[in-house]
Amino acid sequence: MIEIIVTILLISGAAFMLLAAIGITRMPDLFTRMQAATKAAALGASFIFCAVAFFFSELGVTTRAAATIIFIFLTAPVAAHMLGRAAYLLGVPKWEGTVTDELRDRYNLEKGTLSSKSIDSIKKIPVYKQP
């Protein structure tokens, strides 16, 4: 019984990770790539750690697997948020199918502030160049 559960969890976890990898190669711009990569990968990793917890079914292993899952779900959004913000500030090109961009022209890069209303920022977001 445990064998079946572990196998299903492992394969579905690996399938989610493969999905993340397909997403990262197929998606048209950075933000959609991040959407596809970070979440599906975190979900896949937590499935695999669930499988580990079921397979060993010892207290020490289960708690470590649970701690790892919690850690992944705490850190993945923070990393994605910081990277997304940095990429937006760098002016990474967006997909041509992008419908709206309400963040545009709201950064004041001199003062380092972000307005909640549309303003004419002193410095526009630059065109992306390799740092």
Binding site: Q35, K39, P77, H81, R85, L103, L114
Partner: peptide
């Protein structure tokens, strides 16, 4: 913001000052 980021399909970028 973290819950929005974990939900697939949405990603929080920044909070206004």
């Amino acid at each position: 913001a973290n819950l929005i980021t974990i939900t697939p399909g949405t990603l929080s970028l920044d909070v206004s000052t």
